[in-house]
Design a protein around this nucleic acid. Structure first.
Lengths: 215, 215, 215, 215
DNA sequence: CATGAATGAGAATTCATTCAT
DNA sequence: AATGAATGAATTCTCATTCAT
């Protein structure tokens, strides 16, 4: 039976997914363990068999989300060697990711905020932080590629720009999710259209001639 | 006595300021009415004389913060007729504002998210929303100015770009606040330097020649 | 209104007395805060207005009991200058005390057992301990009197004997309370008669001629 | 296979010993079945194969402890025909016993408290009670011996005195265990020295001339 | 027999809110 | 208006016990 550990995994995922759904709708504090038990269709006590505390559930979710996000970024980069195509792919992945885990960006921002002190005490938080750094580096690498490939201005500092892009992209995605209605009403745009506009505008900031030439 | 209402105002401000301080430190959910009463030096029951509920305090704070933010944006615009100077001024105001009300950006993002339905039921939230729209328009106006003054690309859509800038700027400011340490460690930059870098990078996206010429 | 503090006192006493009753019947662990609230006819939340925790209630009870016990011992000593009469009076007081607070001796033994470390952290426990020491000294004083008055063997060490008597007396009282039925059945003695027998036997151990001469 | 029952015995002992260790350290209520399972290195469910409930484990321990105590007392008596030597031997046995099962004295005192009604419903408790009676009788026998041998006052009532001695001895041993530190600090005595002092003082109470002549 | 897994029934504690004065 | 006091309704977490395998 290889299933012993797999079964544990299965239950942890069942629970954390249910929790994730509720956290997304109502927020962490307003979601109770009773709610999670009901949503996951386990007894409340069973939750504590798989997770030591409510916080641990959150950490587990964030860690998973972070790992998945990294997969997406890597997948985006793997699409091509061309920096512009990589950028587009990453943007696409981020959007698809934000559809799957709509509130993850908010949560990630809060979690990674944890100072080094509290991270030291919490190995999960620390792992999240480490992966976050790696993600920044990955985006930085794309920028570097783009400079070498002659797309981006030569004086573009890869790492800070990578980090900045990461922040702006995730910030925009986060907010667009909340303002779909507003965007449609005021700008007559679908949220996907608006995001595409955002991605193009942002990349223009470092393009050599300031203009994105689509193939 | 015209002071009747003024006195009410005074107490409301006393309480909401105390609450704001605590919300910023510990978050909304982790702040109790007891905490607020202690911080404001009122009895807990008195809080309920001036606010119907804890949520009402939050709404009041957000509304005030939104209004103040608008003041800041207007002040930034009033600085000059030159769009670039206005942009810079607004960025500066946003940063100074985020120092004074660090927690506001987060809260605003969440609050304004409220859909039209819940806004209808809550006049305060609706007012917040209205002012938020006005703020977007204000930024849009600056963009329009910049186009007319020949700084920005002619095909820049003023309103969406204004909105996008607003989202990106506030997103960056929010996250930088949480990652000061990381930025210093990994990029060797002060947070203010990084923010300046961010503002310059962003504006390059719509500058005609993609380059910001400082005077 | 001098009653402000007095009222607080009143409620604390109401609650702690109710708790005491339940602790005595069912033990500390098996008594819940709900039980106490019901018994005292307060809401459970109100209990926490007057006591920080369940433990605090226990501490309060023990402290009070200890103080009252000291009163009794002092009263017993005050009865006369004659050591034998003092001894008898103290024994009587202890018995009457054990009727009023039947389970106190058990609890005291446990509480005072606390090592100096945990006492340091708990001022109430420490106070209990201090008073306990004073009680030992008081009994020691009686022994000393008795030696001087020629009742007791001259080589009787006052302090250790005082302490020993205290332990044996309280031990016997504790156990007799639990074994009334057994004593009646097996020895055909009322518990009071048995206790009297115990007190006489014990004092014989240090009487000069080993015999208690009643007046 | 005669071992069927022996094996059951073995497991029951494994479990009850583990439980005993934990009860002694942390008390009955603060020891969980999980703790016991871990300490005994059985699965928690297996505990229920051998004991119907947590209470049953306690009862089993108390019964065993009571039986062992009886062994000790009998051993003490067997040492000699001389009542004084028997007394000393019993005292020594009690002390050694209290070192091995420090928590037992407390528990015994509480358990035996059970009234005849609840004993009827619980055969184990009843057995404990029966053995307790026998123990009292055994001590009573020693007293009787001592009277016949001319050591003790002729009017000493054997049974009540036996019982009294049992209570006082166990009471002292119990409390000394908790107050070692205090005794060392205040009286400059080792706990064993103090106990020896206690035993000598107590026996003096019934010695014909009130003085213990050591050989 | 042995046990991993699941859980019902609490347990202590908290807190926003009400109300009589 | 201001508040001390009181509390209902949760909330997180625990644990003895059961049961299918």
């Amino acid at each position: 039976m290889a299933s012993k550990e797999a079964l544990q995994q299965f239950h942890k995922d069942m629970i954390s997914c249910a929790a994730d759904r509720l956290f997304q709708c109502n927020g962490f504090d307003k979601t109770t363990m009773d709610d999670i038990a009901r949503e996951a269709d386990y007894s409340k006590a069973t939750l504590y068999v798989y997770f030591k505390s409510k916080d641990q559930i959150m950490h587990y979710i964030v860690l998973n989300a972070t790992k998945m996000l990294q997969q997406k970024i890597k997948a985006g980069i793997a699409v091509s060697d061309d920096a512009l195509k990589q950028y587009k792919a990453i943007c696409g992945e981020l959007v698809s990711y934000s559809k799957e885990h709509p509130y993850y960006f908010d949560r990630l921002a809060q979690t990674v905020a944890a100072d080094s002190e509290s991270r030291q005490q919490n190995p999960v938080m620390d792992e999240v932080y480490q992966i976050g750094e790696q993600n920044n580096d990955l985006v930085g690498t794309v920028i570097k590629n783009g400079i070498e490939q002659g797309y981006f201005k030569e004086d573009t500092p890869a790492l800070p720009t990578g980090f900045l892009f990461w922040m702006m992209l995730s910030g925009v995605i986060r907010m667009v999710k909340n303002k779909e209605e507003y965007i449609r009403l005021r700008m007559g745009m679908d949220d996907e259209v608006f995001l595409d506009f955002a991605f193009r505008t942002l990349i223009s900031a470092i393009l050599k001639d300031g203009i994105l030439h689509e193939e």
